[in-house]
Simulated scan of single mutants.
Amino acid sequence: MNQDYIDWLYGLSAPMVALNKESGASYTSPFFFPGYEYIDMQKDWGIHSRETLLAMVFNMVDDGHATALSKHYFMYPRLSALDWLNYTEKQSDYDKVLLEFVEQTYSECGAGGIRSWDYARMGYILRNGITNKFITEEEALWILYRIGLRTQYYYSSWQSYFSGWFVGYQYWESLTNKEDLERLRCDLCRSSQTWTMTKLYTDEDSPYHHLPWHIEIEELEKPESLMEYAWS
């Protein structure tokens, strides 16, 4: 397998690397934190075994945080201004705030919306899973290959992929303010992780600098050890 292709697959978790670079995170190693022998994922993720890791990944890739907004990102460019207004007026007050957010961020991440927020985090989990010996590198690469097909379908560049992650981070940070809609509206307009985006574009190790987005997605054979799972 071409090394650039492997680096590209691990590069799908690049936003999480930028977020954790000072703690030793790597863009290209199979191990997210090469210097660690074990990563505790129980507290933040509830992951403590192979089964819980795979269940999390297979669920979150297609049914994660992005699902709350994916329909809106899909419809926004397909409706006229008047039809979008009519569509908005039929929504709850809470959803109207989210639709404003979609309007404001569509130009950054496109129809893919915040799917990369889920994709990058699952790449992070898979690479930590290799460290913990919950899964093999072969298994992780096959799952990342399937995620990679999704990313190239929904995003046109590293920039739009990174932006989708950043917008997803904004959305996730704001979820605690569902009852205070004005506070939610304000929180969706800003994020504390702007510096992470800067790192993605300035760090010479970032895939942004040395790997094309439109790399050929090499088909990988599904490992026998994953055949019991219907996910693909």
Rank of each mutant, 00 (worst) to 15 (best):
T194P: 11
D62P: 02
V167E: 02
Y27H: 06
S156C: 12
T194F: 07
L220R: 07
L79V: 09
E173L: 13
W195K: 08
G112S: 05
T202N: 07
Y124G: 05
E173T: 10
G123A: 09
L12Q: 02
I114F: 03
A230Y: 04
H48I: 07
L54A: 11
H72S: 06
Y153I: 14
Q3G: 03
K199Q: 10
F58I: 08
Y38W: 12
K90D: 12
Y153C: 15
D44G: 04
L211Q: 03
L98E: 02
S157N: 04
I147P: 01
D95W: 15
N20R: 08
S49V: 10
Q170Y: 08
Q152R: 12
H72Q: 11
W165D: 03
E219D: 13
I147T: 10
G46W: 07
E89Y: 03
K178R: 14
M41E: 04
Y87V: 14
W165S: 05
F58S: 01
S192H: 15
E89Q: 12
F32M: 07
L141D: 01
E108Q: 12
F101K: 01
A55W: 10
L149C: 11
Q42D: 09
T202P: 05
L181Q: 02
W158M: 11
G112A: 05
C189A: 07
A68E: 06
D187N: 13
Y229I: 15
M56K: 03
Y155K: 03
H72P: 03
D95M: 13
S26I: 15
D187W: 14
